[in-house]
Design a protein around this nucleic acid. Structure first.
Length: 117
DNA sequence: AGGGTGACGGGCC
DNA sequence: GGGCCCGCCACCC
């Protein structure tokens, strides 16, 4: 591209996509049965340090989104909703439908983390 | 406009 | 391990 990345504002860096759009693209690529942490999604979107922003973008998705938002979890292998809430339960069952096994409200990031190559 | 607010993360007991 | 604490940073009043 003509304008180097470092000269562009963070929010429009890379392929002319907004940071929100690049986050959507990463989440879209998380495979069935795998998960990615908020921080991982941020790094893969070339936005290191933007974990909280990834959470915000997930929160603002339309309710009928086709994006697999539920595959985004925290780095501790837990769901980032208060246990017992309807949102927690919905995300947990969606993950369990994909084969992710919870033990004491937690699953193994080592086993389920999406890793390239 | 600026300070409070998180679907975070890592470090340190 | 599990809290707690603090840095993080775009959003939203």
């Amino acid at each position: 591209m003509i304008i180097p990345d470092f000269a562009l504002p963070r929010t429009s860096r890379g392929y002319g996509l907004t940071s929100k759009e690049r986050i959507w693209l990463i989440v879209h690529q998380i495979p069935h049965g795998k998960v990615a942490s908020y921080g991982q999604v941020a790094r893969m979107a070339d936005l290191p340090g933007y974990a909280r922003y990834v959470g915000y973008v997930m929160k603002t998705l339309p309710s009928d989104t086709r994006l697999p938002w539920y595959r985004v979890v925290n780095s501790q292998g837990k769901i980032s909703f208060p246990p017992g809430t309807s949102q927690y339960l919905r995300q947990k069952s969606l993950l369990e439908e994909e084969g992710i096994v919870f033990i004491d409200g937690r699953f193994s990031m080592g086993q389920y983390r999406w890793q390239l190559r």
